[in-house]
Design a protein around this nucleic acid. Structure first.
Length: 552
RNA sequence: GCCCUCGUAGCUCAGUGGAUAGAGCAAGAGCCUUCUAAUCUCUUGGUCGCUGGUUCGAUUCCAGCCGAGGGCACCA
């Protein structure tokens, strides 16, 4: 019996009670929340369903709870059902029923925690999407960690996920980048509106070295074009490698320029014109986004004939939908939140449902600290701290974990000093250590002849044992909610709790017999639980893109 | 002025209407002849920014205010 099964059983009981008239008609919830109560005296699992549904069925919570309790008593594995307070149902499993979970997990292996809840859904997750004008800064790095983890979580729910990077290789920013490269190659200072930072010199030098002809001898505009093409390609490659080294591999790098080359932009505008959402004013072409809640209409083609940035967005969104994505997730930094209304408006203008077909997540800023002081200097970029700086300072695992363990709605302060410590104030080591312990125990067990030839879950009665089992049981629910709310940090918080429960269990319950004693049923049974914990830790860390070492 | 996010322990942060608000760190005290002491045990620590509202019940939902950060282009 797992909490998931208990939840399903409650729904069935409610439906049956409705069928034979013990409660009135009315819509039943598809899912009943079953929680682990904070207070151990409140049983193994608890639900507030009676309080939530009582008024709907014109009864009082305790009376409904009593009806449910009588039915729950009859379930296999339920040892005790209490009604507490205003109408909580507190359910206690028998040790045997609870312990069965260890075997379920071991047999499920890396599939434990996954489901097919989102099967058949095609989801496009677009993140990072930093301009190829410099290294990836911390905002992009946060989304690299969180976006990749979110993608893994959605995949674990059965969705077909495409990780996509929108590569902005068109427009004025790129021109500035090209002018900066050219200026630096000539030994001139960076243009007023250009890019500084040592990496500009690196790229400029490499462009010169990689090109056979003498670019600097070309006319100004041709030279700039040569630097643009070669510089963007080099920067692109560098970004791709940084991301790969960070454990993030994109399925699609989508080049903005391709939308113009393929005339997709013109087609998207034509489509909106057919739908009646385009008008002309003052020589410019506008999208009437105010129809869909934007606070002002938006210029799509400027009066000088150039496309505004949103023209690319229109075509890009349409392209995603035409590629068959049911959901298009955009993961943007806080400095882009002002785009949300116009993006939602363009979604609606195409006849789609904002917030469903197009969904935008906003990530707040990340501040790096060292000894409480903000870190501002970066060797290469000069003014911003980059993904590579973070990796160099703390490594990939600690970096990804720190970025993924808190809500992206909150600004985040990361202390580099803390992350480099190999102690408990660095949560990623706490969790990885727990996993390494499960592996070490497994190895010791094998050498002492403890195997999984027996499984007697009724022996798993120590309090730390039932705590651990209950915690392991929550993984499927945690993954489902992390996917539903697009919040990978739920997995990180959860895995820390699992690690804590495992360490406490390890401290109390031995898998291998003391000093050469005989291996008994209890030891063999505990080996199942040990391995189950290892699987849950591993599966959770996988979802975060953090390694699960076998020894540390 | 308008918009978005945030405000919870000394610090970094969990907690999407429930029971006595949690974790780690920091501070203090313990446990290594026994599977990894990067572990574990115990102690200290709170006006959940403020004021109202909604209800059986609000840290959670709503409104206003205060504070922090970020945005408000025919820039990209």
């Amino acid at each position: 019996m797992t909490p998931t099964e208990l939840s399903a059983a409650l729904v069935i009981i409610l439906r049956r009670m409705q069928d034979d008239g013990r409660i009135g008609a009315g819509e039943l919830p598809s899912d009943v929340v079953v929680e682990r109560p904070k207070n151990r005296e409140h049983g193994d699992w608890s639900t507030n369903v009676a309080m939530q549904l009582a008024s709907k069925f014109e009864t009082n919570p305790r009376a409904l709870a009593a009806l449910l309790a009588a039915e729950l008593q009859l379930l296999d594995g339920v040892a005790k059902v209490d009604i507490a307070g205003p109408g909580f149902l507190n359910i206690t499993f028998s040790a045997e029923a609870a312990g069965e979970l260890a075997k379920i997990i071991v047999e499920a292996g890396n599939a434990f925690g996954s489901s097919e809840a989102l099967a058949g859904l095609k989801i496009n997750v677009e993140f990072v999407s930093a301009n190829p004008t410099g290294p990836i800064h911390m905002g992009g790095t946060r989304w690299a960690a969180v976006g990749d983890s979110l993608s893994r979580i959605l995949e674990a729910q059965g969705a077909e996920v495409t990780r996509e990077y929108y590569f902005n290789d068109h427009g004025a920013q790129i021109d500035r980048f090209a002018r900066s490269l050219l200026a630096r190659a000539k030994g001139l200072p960076a243009p007023e509106d250009g890019y500084g930072g040592a990496y500009i010199q690196d790229i400029a030098d490499r462009v010169l070295a990689d090109t056979a002809e003498d670019i600097l001898a070309l006319p100004e505009d041709e030279a700039q074009e040569a630097f643009r093409a070669a510089g963007v390609a080099l920067m692109f490659e560098e970004i791709r490698i940084s991301l790969h080294d960070f454990g993030v591999d994109f399925d699609v790098f989508f080049h903005e320029n391709s939308l113009y080359e393929s005339k997709a932009v013109d087609r998207a505008i034509a489509r909106l014109r057919e739908l009646g959402h385009i008008f002309e004013l003052d020589g410019a072409v506008w999208l009437r986004s105010t129809t869909f809640g934007d606070d002002r209409d938006r210029v799509v083609i400027k009066s000088d004939g150039e496309h505004a940035y949103i023209a690319g967005d229109l075509a890009y969104y349409l392209d995603k939908r035409e590629r068959g994505f049911d959901r298009c997730l955009y993961l943007l930094g806080a400095d882009h939140h002002g785009y949300v209304p116009r993006m939602m408006a363009l979604c609606a203008a195409f006849g789609d449902e904002p917030g469903v077909n197009l969904e935008i997540l906003i990530g707040q800023m990340v501040n790096l600290l060292r000894d409480g002081e903000p870190v501002r200097m970066s060797k290469r970029a000069g003014t911003v701290v980059t993904m590579e700086d973070l990796v160099e300072a703390v490594g990939v695992d600690a970096g990804r974990y720190a970025l993924a363990r808190s809500s992206s709605n909150s600004q985040l302060d990361i202390d580099l000093e803390q992350l480099t410590k190999r102690t408990n104030d660095n949560p990623v080591f706490y969790v990885q250590y727990a996993h390494a312990r499960t592996k070490q125990v497994e190895k010791n067990a094998a050498s002492l002849g403890v195997d999984r030839s027996e499984f007697e879950p009724s022996l798993l009665v120590h309090p730390s044992e039932s705590e651990l089992i209950a915690k392991l049981a929550e993984l499927p629910r945690i993954v489902a909610s992390a996917a539903e709310f697009r919040e990978p940090h739920r997995v990180a918080r959860y895995v820390e709790e699992v690690a804590g429960a495992y360490h406490r269990w390890y401290d109390n319950c031995r898998v291998t017999p003391l000093s050469g004693g005989p291996a008994e049923t209890i030891h063999r049974t505990r080996l199942w639980l040990n391995n189950a914990a290892g699987i849950v830790l591993k599966n959770s860390l996988d979802l975060l893109g953090v390694s699960a070492p076998e020894r540390m």
